[in-house]
Amino acid sequence: MPKPNPDALDFLLTRRSRPAKTLIGPVPSADALKPLLLAAARTPDHGKLEPWRFIVVEKPAMARLAGIAETRGKALGLDADQIAKGRTQFDQGHLAIAVIEVQKPSEKIPALEQTYSAGAVCLALLNAALASGWGANWLSGWPSHDRPFMQQALGLEPHERIAGFIHIGTETTAPPERPRPDLDSITTWINV
């Protein structure tokens, strides 16, 4: 019989992302952030390729990213609401970790599995931050999918892309609960 870890299971059953707009300073120091990054780097990774890396975006850099998002939104012909939404996460952000998917050549590990691993890193980092008492949220949005934004804001190479921005800070309000999936409607049991 396996040895249960009820505290860990309770955390996973009750975890809730905090809206990024409600996060303020203080934010984790570099020393406090390192264990969170280490926890995220323990994500399953077929072939030990490490198809991801981290870019820590601190408050002083947020204004630059917000400006690039606005410039790119205008160049793309987006409407004012889309542009505002694209820059808001940076205008309001205090600390974010950009999880960067780094596609690596492999005869054994398909590109899609590398993408899955990068997504798992995002969730692991989010959960590590929450488990450490910080408020955290995983955001993407159109700037995360815009190649010129990736290059100008973060200096990404052609084989890299943004898997997500994990915003971390001090929680100001309790997060609202949201509807959860109906387990019976999304689960199929096969026994033959």
Rank of each mutant, 00 (worst) to 15 (best):
T172K: 09
A69S: 13
S140I: 13
T22E: 14
G169N: 12
W134M: 04
T173H: 14
R72M: 10
I186Q: 13
L156T: 05
E157I: 00
T187Q: 05
P35S: 03
P19F: 03
A41M: 11
P60H: 09
R147W: 13
A8E: 10
P26I: 11
K21N: 03
T173R: 13
R178A: 06
Y116F: 09
D31C: 00
Q114T: 10
K108T: 09
V56Y: 10
A163K: 04
G25I: 05
L123D: 04
T172D: 11
G169W: 11
L76K: 15
I100N: 02
A39K: 14
I24T: 15
L33E: 01
K74D: 06
N5C: 05
K108E: 11
E171I: 03
A120Q: 06
A118S: 15
V102N: 13
E160M: 09
A41H: 09
G73D: 08
P158H: 09
N191V: 06
G47E: 02
R87K: 15
I100R: 02
D7G: 03
F165L: 04
M62S: 08
L139F: 09
D146T: 08
E50C: 06
W142I: 01
A80E: 15
T22W: 15
P105H: 13
P51G: 05
L125I: 08
T115N: 00
Q114F: 10
A120W: 07
K104R: 15
C122S: 08
L139Q: 15
P176E: 09
T172C: 03
N127E: 11
L36F: 14
A8M: 12
L38G: 04
L95W: 14
F90H: 06
L126C: 08
A84L: 08
A63G: 02
E50L: 06
S132H: 15
F165S: 03
W138L: 01
V99G: 05
W189I: 14
P179R: 08
E58P: 04
K59F: 02
R53C: 07
L123C: 10
L13V: 02
M62T: 08
